Simulated assay, not measured.
Amino acid sequence: MTYEHGTIDSALAAVAGDEPAVIQDLRCAFLEGVTRALETMKAARDGQEWREAALRLKGLAASVNALPLMTLAGQAAERDTRDGDLLDRIAEVVARL
């Protein structure tokens, strides 16, 4: 998903300017946050935990204009319970970041 990678890097560059090391640090922090949110969704014991993690993921995705991830996370946040199929689709998108 080259487009997504470029979009994220462009958004980070807008914040960090022409500082490759800072962009890389921000990218790592973004990916760590996304991974934590995804793991929280996987471990969610109830609908509230699921929705909160999905909203966190949606916010992270929005912060770097990662539209496919933001869309899927938004769909997840609308669910009252854990959705395994949707979780798999989100994990696929995250793996491509």
Rank of each mutant, 00 (worst) to 15 (best):
1 M>P: 05
1 M>W: 07
1 M>S: 13
1 M>F: 09
3 Y>V: 15
3 Y>G: 11
4 E>S: 14
5 H>W: 09
5 H>N: 13
8 I>K: 06
10 S>G: 09
10 S>A: 15
11 A>L: 06
11 A>I: 08
13 A>K: 14
13 A>V: 11
14 A>F: 07
16 A>P: 05
17 G>F: 04
18 D>N: 13
19 E>Q: 10
19 E>N: 15
19 E>A: 11
21 A>L: 11
21 A>C: 02
22 V>H: 10
22 V>N: 01
23 I>V: 15
23 I>G: 01
24 Q>N: 12
24 Q>W: 02
24 Q>R: 15
25 D>F: 08
26 L>E: 01
26 L>A: 03
27 R>M: 02
28 C>D: 12
29 A>R: 08
29 A>C: 05
30 F>Y: 11
30 F>N: 02
31 L>A: 14
32 E>H: 14
32 E>P: 02
33 G>Q: 08
33 G>R: 08
33 G>T: 11
33 G>M: 12
34 V>Y: 07
35 T>D: 12
36 R>H: 09
37 A>Y: 04
37 A>P: 00
38 L>G: 02
38 L>F: 09
39 E>Y: 00
41 M>V: 06
42 K>R: 15
43 A>N: 13
44 A>Y: 07
45 R>I: 02
45 R>A: 13
46 D>P: 05
46 D>N: 15
46 D>I: 08
47 G>S: 06
47 G>H: 10
48 Q>F: 01
49 E>K: 10
49 E>F: 00
49 E>R: 09
51 R>P: 00
52 E>D: 15
54 A>D: 04
55 L>M: 11
56 R>E: 11
56 R>Q: 14
57 L>I: 09
57 L>K: 05
58 K>M: 10
58 K>G: 06
58 K>A: 04
58 K>W: 08
59 G>K: 01
60 L>S: 09
61 A>M: 07
62 A>C: 03
65 N>Q: 09
66 A>N: 03
69 L>M: 11
70 M>Q: 14
71 T>K: 06
71 T>I: 10
73 A>M: 09
73 A>R: 07
73 A>P: 06
74 G>R: 03
75 Q>T: 08
77 A>M: 09
78 E>G: 11
80 D>W: 06
81 T>N: 11
82 R>N: 07
84 G>L: 14
84 G>Q: 13
86 L>R: 04
87 L>A: 06
89 R>C: 02
89 R>T: 06
90 I>R: 03
95 A>P: 02
95 A>F: 04
97 L>Y: 06
97 L>M: 13
97 L>I: 05
